[in-house]
């Protein structure tokens, strides 16, 4: 049986103004489970309630309703914090400290004593590629370096669960790939990763399962493969006559001729056989048939704009 690392049951958070009567439901009836060893993508537009949920999971804020469990204990239990790590969006560290000092600072918060502390810091600096910048103050670091030192502080306690908020935001393409690789590497080591991101291509590349949040409510939840399956099929052919177009359209897809080539797009692969038969019967030669998998972006836009609920 898969072990549950994060579990929320009907989690709700309502902010109400102190003086005014306006209230905001940041999270509504959110129920989800994150399993051990998976990379879970937690998506949604700004203000959808992602960060609120994370803060509840970390015990920084308290839910108005529902329950949240992390690593089997109610959220906010400091003992659990020995086994998890959190990287906030655009993290800011005491920038007068050097990379080494900031890691030492966080290591002390974990109660990691010497000589273990120095050993681990050295190892982590190497792992995130900051060995040479270790004794530079953080304010001289580039955005990518800051993100990497942020990731390093997350790994100090060799956590079972990593909660990463926008880990690749504002990074250049190379740094993107670095971070992406590190995330995959961590999963391979058996860690659970809970990743919040706008960078849908990154999420698509690494996540096993995703949840899409909309206005504080769960809009989609599932395995990435399943969510993205069921796309269109495209076919390209040549040596066909103009008259075939109407017959093709009758099969439910779209078709047009361009410089002697026929382009057909069918909504699913069930009808593609009939299209192929029709083209062959008319003496056409098929160049390619390609099933088009949906992109996460399509799903995201569709979910947020379509108002469809899972």
């Amino acid at each position: 049986m898969e072990q549950t690392v994060i579990k929320t049951v009907n989690l709700s958070k309502r902010y109400s103004g102190l003086w005014s009567k306006t209230t905001v439901d940041a999270v509504k009836n959110l129920s989800l489970e994150v399993n051990k060893g998976e990379i879970f993508g937690f998506l949604g537009p700004n203000g959808a309630g992602k960060t609120t949920t994370i803060k509840i999971l970390l015990g920084i804020i308290y839910p108005t309703q529902g329950e949240a469990y992390v690593l089997g204990t109610p959220a906010g239990d400091p003992k659990t914090h020995f086994k998890l790590s959190y990287l906030p969006e655009n993290p800011y560290f005491y920038d007068y400290m050097t990379g080494e000092e900031i890691l030492s600072f966080y290591a002390q918060l974990f109660g990691i004593g010497e000589p273990e502390r120095s050993k681990r810091i050295k190892e982590l600096l190497g792992r995130v590629g900051l060995s040479r910048a270790a004794s530079q103050p953080i304010r001289t670091y580039s955005k990518g370096m800051q993100q990497r030192i942020g990731l390093a502080q997350c790994l100090l306690n060799d956590p079972e669960l990593l909660i990463l908020d926008e880990p690749t935001a504002g990074l250049d393409p190379i740094a993107h790939i670095d971070i992406r690789d590190m995330i995959l590497d961590l999963r391979d080591k058996g860690k659970t990763l809970f990743v919040c991101s706008h960078q849908l291509s990154d999420v698509e590349a690494v996540c096993d399962r995703v949840a899409i949040l909309k206005n504080g409510e769960m809009a989609r939840l599932g395995k990435l493969d399943e969510l993205l399956a069921g796309g269109t099929v495209e076919m390209i052919a040549e040596r066909v006559e103009n008259g075939i177009l109407d017959q093709l359209k009758a099969l439910g897809g779209q078709a047009h001729l361009h410089e002697g080539k026929l382009f057909v797009q069918q909504p699913d692969d069930d009808s593609i056989g009939a299209v192929i038969d029709l083209v062959r019967k008319n003496g056409g030669r098929i160049i390619s048939v390609l099933p088009q998998r949906r992109s996460l972006e399509d799903l995201f836009v569709e979910t947020i704009q379509g108002g469809k609920s899972a």
Partner: peptide, 11 residues
Amino acid sequence: RTIYTILSKPV
């Protein structure tokens, strides 16, 4: 947001 990194530690 430094407080989040600190409070997410066993502090």
